[in-house]
Design a protein around this nucleic acid. Structure first.
Length: 420
DNA sequence: TCTGGGGTCCTAGGACCC
DNA sequence: TCTGGGGTCCTAGGACCC
């Protein structure tokens, strides 16, 4: 990117699917169209809304709202658990459509993506024409609506698609970024959440334009590195690691985790440890699927009063084996858990991921290779017959074996009725 | 209003090494 | 011996995103 090359002005698209989960549900059950629909779980359950139909939004229901609150606002709504596998399937279809328009596509999540369309004018026409074609093609192939933001940076493109919702297109021409952003609430900037918004409000800063007028030095003193990124955003410039890198480059995940909130808080040690082992097996399995090895294991606990803690441990070498990860997560749990305290959520994650096995593991050799092969076989059986079909009890891994079997087939969420 | 699950990035302090 | 500083790793927590 250096040398004699002049930095060309980029044309970045941000494509965001409209009410994605709800729209996919409507494809499978057209009777839902036009109804008040909430995806995320059933009325009385613990949990939050992951998507609400536009009809539901009229009642104040939005994503991240507790389900029980949604049920109060909207008792007549249709509550759906949702179908993650369908969303993934349609996400792939969306990706396929986008790739017709540019080789540089970056799926930022299941339902949104960035495209670099710099230099495609001769092929696709001007940005608005390309966006129109994309819209049509998306509808034809997937049956879904999307909104498109077009700008010279990912950040502004994202703000644009948000402003264009639903089913619209917004293009901010080069040079007009700051003028477009100025009248918007600071909250519209990606990266400014509840906390930052509140801090800015206390300084009398409500609009992006207010932010843009401040000295960088002032922001740096108040917010550190963050402040500098904020200053850049206010001018419409990509800032912070969040927007780094080429669009479309493949990146390995940085962490893998699974967690569960129980239907009811529990202080049953055996149950907690079994749940943790199940979650750890899932994590290990995903490591093997992605051919990754992890070195750091993190336990997460949330007590009934919602206080949350994490404890992590870095292993001397990387692994992807169930018994090693289970031993680590269980040890962390035993060290961290306030014995007897009721637990709302338990989770486990791995980080420091690496494609290669640790040196020691290679030397230690055969034993682990046998274990790895055995686990791959288990993964295949689970593919065929379901997660519940195989659980590794004693035996596997010898002295690393799991020792809690009180509830060997009990899955998180299917908790026995509490005892007294 | 009683707060999911899966991620990313940032900060800050302490250990340790040079 | 005292002092300082920088870099890196590890750990814990927190803001934020969809």
């Amino acid at each position: 990117m250096r040398g004699d090359c002049v930095q060309t002005v980029k044309t970045i698209f941000h494509v965001d699917m409209d009410a994605f989960f709800v729209s996919v549900e409507e494809l499978f059950d057209p009777s839902l169209i036009g109804k008040v629909v909430v995806v995320g779980g059933q009325k009385g359950e613990r949990g939050v809304v992951s998507a609400a139909s536009y009809e539901a939004r009229k009642f104040g229901v939005h994503s991240a709202l507790p389900l029980r609150t949604a049920a109060q606002l909207c008792p007549h709504a249709i509550f759906l658990n949702g179908h993650p596998d369908r969303y993934r399937e349609y996400s792939h279809k969306v990706h396929g459509v986008l790739k017709e328009f540019s080789p540089q596509v970056e799926m930022a999540s299941v339902d949104e993506a960035y495209l670099d369309l710099t230099g495609t004018e001769r092929l696709l026409g001007p940005p608005l024409a390309a966006a129109h074609a994309l819209h049509e093609r998306m509808k034809a192939v997937t049956g879904l609506n999307c909104s498109v933001g077009i700008a010279t940076s990912k950040m502004v493109a994202k703000v644009c698609s948000d402003q264009a919702k639903p089913n619209g297109v917004l293009w901010i021409q080069p040079g007009l970024e700051a003028r477009f952003l100025a009248p918007l609430d600071v909250r519209r900037l990606p990266g400014v959440g509840k906390v930052t918004e509140e801090k800015l409000h206390q300084l009398g800063i409500r609009k992006v334009g207010d932010l843009a007028k401040l000295e960088e030095d002032f922001l740096r003193k108040r917010f550190g590195q963050w402040g500098l990124a904020l200053a850049g955003k206010a001018q419409g410039v990509d800032a912070g690691a969040w927007f780094d890198g080429e669009i479309g480059g493949h990146e390995d995940p940085k962490s893998i985790s699974h967690e569960i909130t129980f239907g009811e808080d529990t202080n049953d040690q055996a149950y907690l440890e079994t749940s943790l082992a199940r979650l750890t097996e899932k994590v290990a399995r995903r490591l093997r699927e992605q051919e990754l090895h992890a070195r750091t294991v993190t336990l997460k606990l949330r007590y009934s009063d919602f206080t949350t803690l994490t404890r992590s441990h870095t292993l001397p070498r990387t692994t992807q084996l169930d018994h090693e990860l289970i031993a680590a997560s269980r040890k962390l749990f035993r060290q961290a858990w306030r014995s007897g305290a009721r637990v709302r959520l338990i989770g486990v994650g791995v980080a420091s991921l690496d494609e290669n096995e640790g040196q020691l593991a290679l030397i230690e050799g055969e034993k682990n290779e046998r274990a790895r092969r055995a686990l791959s076989a288990v993964d295949k059986i689970r593919d065929k017959f379901g997660e519940k079909s195989v659980h590794l009890a004693a035996g596997m891994g010898g002295d690393h074996a799991e020792r809690v079997h009180e509830n060997p087939v009990g899955l998180p969420g299917k908790m026995p009725k509490k005892k007294g």
